[in-house]
C-alpha cells in the first residue's frame, strides 16, 4: 500500500492506495502516533481492498482524534469500500465526504 502524507498545523491528511489490510495497518497507526493529530482526513480513493484490521485502525484513529477534541474524516470511498462500511454500519459512525479537501 502506498501512503502520501500531508501535515499542516490544522490537520493530518493521508492518501492511501492499494490493499489496506492487517499487514499495512502498522504504517497508518504509526502516522497517527507520530503526529497525534486533532483533525485528520484519510482519502481512500485508491484503496482496492480493506479488511477488519484496517477498519479497526480507522476506528482507533477516529477515537484518538475525538479524544483530542477533533474529528477524522474519510474521503472519496470507492464503491467496494463503501459496501464494507455499509455492511458494518460504520458509514453511520464516520464523517464521510466525497470532496478531497474536506475539513
Amino acid at each position: 500500500m502506498q501512503i502520501i502524507e500531508e501535515i499542516t498545523p490544522e490537520k493530518l491528511t493521508l492518501r492511501l492506495s492499494g490493499r489496506f489490510d492487517a499487514h499495512e495497518t502498522p504504517q497508518v497507526r504509526q502516522k497517527f502516533t507520530e503526529h497525534a493529530p486533532k483533525n485528520a482526513l484519510i482519502d481512500l480513493s485508491g484503496v482496492t481492498f480493506l479488511d477488519s484490521a484496517a477498519l479497526s485502525t480507522l476506528v482507533q484513529a477516529m477515537k484518538n482524534c475525538r479524544e483530542r477534541g477533533g474529528e477524522l474524516t474519510l474521503a472519496n470511498m470507492p464503491q467496494p469500500v463503501r459496501i464494507i462500511f455499509e455492511l458494518t454500519r460504520l458509514d453511520k459512525a464516520f464523517n464521510i465526504v466525497n470532496a478531497p479537501d474536506a475539513p
Binding site: 477498519l55 476506528v59 482507533q60 477515537k63 454500519r89 460504520l90
Partner: peptide, 9 residues
C-alpha cells in the same frame, strides 16, 4: 479494539 468498535456503535 473490538470493544471500541462496539462502543462506537
Amino acid at each position: 479494539e473490538v470493544v471500541d468498535w462496539y462502543m462506537l456503535h
